[in-house]
C-alpha cells in the first residue's frame, strides 16, 4: 500500500513538472494562467496524498485552504490582466428588474 501511495505521489510530481514546462513556454498569457491554475489543483491533491503517505491526514486542512486560495488567485490574476486594476466591480450593479421570475 505504501508502494502504491509512493508511486502515485511520484506520478503527480511528474505531472506537475510537465505542467511547469507548459507554464514556462506557453505561447500566450492564457496558457500560463491555465497551467498555473491546473498546477494549483494538482498541489491540492498532492498535499492530501502526502498527508496520507506520511500518516498525517491533518494535511487535508491545508489542502482545503489551498483549493480556495487557488481559485481566488486565478480570478484575481485574470481580473488584473483584463482591467489593469483590482478596483473594478465584477458584478453588475443593481440589475434591471427581472422579467418573469
Amino acid at each position: 500500500m505504501n508502494l502504491l501511495l509512493a508511486s502515485a505521489t511520484v506520478a503527480l510530481l511528474l505531472g506537475i513538472v510537465l505542467l511547469l514546462i507548459r507554464a514556462l513556454m506557453g505561447p500566450t498569457l492564457y496558457d500560463r494562467v491555465l497551467a498555473v491554475n491546473s498546477f494549483g489543483t494538482k498541489t491540492v491533491l498532492l498535499l492530501g496524498l502526502l498527508g496520507f503517505a506520511m500518516g498525517r491526514p491533518d494535511f487535508l486542512d491545508i489542502a482545503l485552504l489551498y483549493a480556495l486560495i487557488n481559485f481566488v488567485s486565478t480570478i484575481a490574476i485574470l481580473k488584473f490582466f483584463r482591467y489593469r486594476s483590482f478596483q473594478v466591480s465584477l458584478s453588475r450593479r443593481a440589475p434591471a428588474p427581472k422579467e418573469g421570475s
Partner: peptide
C-alpha cells in the same frame, strides 16, 4: 494511483 495516472494523462494533453 489511478487518479495520479489520469492526472498525468491530462497533463500530457495540456
Amino acid at each position: 494511483l489511478l487518479g495520479a495516472v489520469l492526472t498525468v494523462i491530462g497533463t500530457a494533453g495540456v
